[in-house]
Amino acid sequence: MEPISRFRGKTVALAIPNIDTDQITPAKFTMVTDKVGLGRILFAHWRYRDAEKQIPNPDFPLNKPGAQGATILVAGDNFGCGSSREHAPWALVGYGLRAVVSTSFADIFRSNALKNGLLPIVVDPESHRQALREAEGNLEFVVDLPEQTLALASGRAVSFAIDPFAKRCLVQGVDELGYILSHERRIAEYERSR
């Protein structure tokens, strides 16, 4: 995983609450044995007029000319509810997104996103409203993970919370498995003790 520190990125808005994983990655398109190449199925039912033939729906925000190259998605409340499929963050990352901004995230999605270098950024409702307005114009935000701040285009700086352990993994570009493996002796002791 690439380390994440500070980056500037173009935004795109999806002002819909409760966007579930069946919208992010419809089940039918998740029949894969790999993680890569899923960017093309992102929001397949919304993004394409015909998802099988991938004929784009020009009205969908990600398909607008101004949104091309966006790396920060500003979405409605409770993003990522529904299934545990990690195909959802794989597709978001595969599309080129590096952060999703919302007022809240479903638990499993948030956990999956953090393991794939996708930042789930929770902001307060007022900052969220402004972020949505700015993202409708595809303005640029700056994400600073070490400082835990999101700078909107207007200059408003919003601080966000992130699990300190997840932050350390993201900033160093390491995954969690190495940490669990380092406790092998304790795990074996635990197993013997039962």
């Binding site: 993680k35 299934s83 545990s84 499929r85 990690e86 963050p89 638990d107 499993i108 956990s111 999956n112 393991k115 794939n116 699990d163 352990f165 995954d175 969690e176 498995l177 940490y179 669990i180 493996l181 406790h183 092998e184 795990i187 197993e191």
Partner: peptide, 22 residues
């Protein structure tokens, strides 16, 4: 509880998961 595929890998490898107490 449900987990993602990265966590499936963690459990296969270590029979453990990293979790914050809900």
């Amino acid at each position: 509880f449900g987990i993602g595929t990265t966590e499936v890998e963690h459990v296969l490898a270590t029979q453990c998961l990293l979790q914050r107490k809900p």
